[in-house]
Design a binder for these strands. Structure first.
Lengths: 263, 263
DNA sequence: ACCTGAACACCGTTCAAGT
DNA sequence: ACCTGAACACCGTTCAAGT
């Protein structure tokens, strides 16, 4: 019966608003002297997010956050139950950044794409945060807000409620996965300093090209096709496929179709 | 120039074949006396996979694998470069389990779905292995084999090569994400012993139902719709959307469409 | 109520030394 | 070439004690 199963528990950061990264120094002009700012859940989430941007998911630890906040790791546990809850809060902060459009029946499909682009953009600003999505089930305020917004857009497009609900799940999984994949590449680029994106793509392309042609006839002959569109083209294709697939569930499409078939 | 950037390096387990989990005891009848079997990359991967099934991704460590193999953690590093490479090998073993159908132009779309169902089924057999996918870019033999097979199916469906290539990326991200999400639920079910799936769904449903109706009119009124289809219905919907979206790129569909429009 | 130091029970990885 | 013990530099989390 207890709702702790879902680790939702309406966190205090619900009212948090925009990402609002504050400067690291204390309130006074002498940061060494000024007694440290009081610890809050928000400050912990801010710091986690900031570090995920700088060093990726694996680089952020309870201890690294505590260090930056000039305290010990144990102190964090007064505001955050554990690492999993912190991941929840981080993901929810990112979800909260996505602007939710007023549904317009004439361009509901394009509005869905806009929401998705906005979500990916925010993830891109904080590589590393994406991995946090994969460690939790997003059920915080921001995630619910987005789900509500998406449902409303789908209804504007005459998509049946069940399809809309499942579509929300589908698309948020897709965006999370894309963000994680991009984060892996960007972390790898940091390690291998020689890896400017262009060179990497070229190298992967020739890796495909050199696969044994008898076993991999398509991959080897289509090497450049396989690695094309690392940037937005690939993602735009994904959006297009998903939204096109969703439209096949739209009631208006169904009606038009059955009319065409019926005569 | 060095291909180490991609951590592919044609692992010895290429020929590995089926999952082939062997019994834990040594070759002799007295496991304590029999000198330990020689360590191999395959045995390490087997053990990692087995543990991922039993205890999930986080429970599997270099040390836990070494312990089960009756040796110290340092010994593993003679056969596996690091944890990331091990994850690569684990994922690739799973990818290798997927049967690749002979393309049939009459049911290429259904064949794609069959491949995807098979992939998810294998992930489900090893919850935890899914999280490994999210830590790497799959480029091993098994993953390439699947990509090649998918490209062939797409060609049988007259899907342009570029669309096919991107679709392969899209669908493998989706399946990985679904598998990860399912693994999270199943791990959570293990911790909260009270959580048989039915109760959990009921609890989540009432969580949605009790959301403030003014802020979440759709989520609160559609609670049971939001949580419906936790099993295969949801996944089948995803497959249907993706394949329907893909078909809108098929040349034959395009021709039929332009013919209909052109007259 | 919030914060702290110190400790517990772990990690991945390296490295000199053995066979 | 393969394996080992011991060590290094970390983890998340707990807990009694302080304010």
């Amino acid at each position: 019966m207890s709702s702790t199963v879902f680790v939702v528990e309406t966190p205090k950061s619900w009212q948090a608003g925009p990402l609002n990264i504050r400067p690291r120094t204390g309130p006074g002009s002498d940061p060494a002297k000024a007694h440290r700012e009081r610890l809050t859940t928000d400050r912990i989430v801010d710091e986690a997010l900031e570090q995920m941007r700088e060093v990726g998911y694996d680089g952020v630890t309870m201890r690294s956050i505590a260090r930056a906040l000039d305290t010990g790791p144990a102190s964090l546990y007064a505001h955050v139950a554990n690492r999993e809850e912190l991941d929840q809060l981080v993901v929810d902060r990112i979800a909260s950044e996505v602007r939710i459009p007023e549904p317009d029946p004439d361009r509901w499909d394009e509005q869905i794409k806009e929401m998705m682009r906005a979500a990916l953009t925010t993830y891109r600003a904080y590589p590393g945060a994406a991995r946090a999505t994969m460690a939790i089930i997003p059920t915080g305020y921001g995630a619910l807000r987005n789900a509500e917004g998406l449902m409303a857009l789908c209804r504007a497009g005459n998509v049946p409620d069940q399809a809309a609900a499942w579509f929300g799940d589908l698309i948020s999984l897709y965006i999370g996965a894309v963000a994680v994949e991009e984060a892996i590449w960007s972390e790898r680029a940091k390690v291998h300093a020689d890896a400017d994106p262009e060179r990497v793509v070229a190298a992967v392309t020739s890796y495909f090209a050199e696969l044994p042609a008898d076993e991999f006839p398509m991959l080897s002959s289509l090497a450049s096709v396989m690695t094309a569109g690392v940037g937005d083209d690939r993602f735009e294709f994904g959006l297009a496929v998903l939204v096109a697939g969703l439209k096949s569930y739209s009631e208006t499409a169904r009606v038009a179709e059955s009319e065409a078939g019926g005569r």
